[in-house]
Amino acid sequence: MKHRYQINGISCGGCVTRVKKTLEEHPNIENVEIFLQPVGATIVKMNKKLTVEELQGQLNELDGYTIAEIN
């Protein structure tokens, strides 16, 4: 199942790579797509739905990024 999010703090391709790698380390995340246009738009494919808090917990390994669900 795919879910749409906005990740704040993304500013370049290096950010995209770092955030993607960190999120994909979670066992319930299959794939992450992060876009620079619009900046920070993200699609996360999961095998089990995670809460925004769980995703933020995973992102907290990095400094300066926050995630919010897009409806």
Rank of each mutant, 00 (worst) to 15 (best):
C15V: 05
K20A: 04
G13W: 03
N71E: 14
N8V: 12
V19I: 05
I29H: 07
L50N: 04
L59N: 04
M1E: 15
N71R: 15
V39T: 15
I7L: 05
T51G: 00
T17Q: 15
I34W: 00
K2F: 08
N71P: 10
G40N: 07
K45M: 14
I67A: 02
C15H: 02
V19E: 01
G13H: 09
G13S: 12
A68C: 12
K2W: 09
L59Q: 03
R4N: 11
E53N: 10
E24M: 03
C12R: 07
I7H: 01
T42W: 03
G40T: 04
L50P: 06
I29T: 00
T17M: 13
I67M: 07
Y65L: 06
G9C: 04
E24K: 05
N8G: 11
T22H: 02
R4V: 07
K20W: 01
E61Y: 03
M46I: 06
E30M: 13
K45T: 14
M1A: 15
M46L: 05
G64T: 05
I10D: 06
R4K: 13
G9R: 00
P38A: 08
M46R: 06
V52C: 06
P38F: 05
M46V: 04
I7S: 06
C15F: 02
Y65A: 03
I70E: 11
E24T: 00
E24V: 04
L36W: 09
G64C: 06
K49Q: 14
I43D: 12
V19M: 04
V16M: 05
I67G: 04
M1Q: 15
E30Q: 13
H26P: 08
C12Y: 02
E25T: 12
Q6C: 11
E61A: 12
K48I: 09
S11L: 09
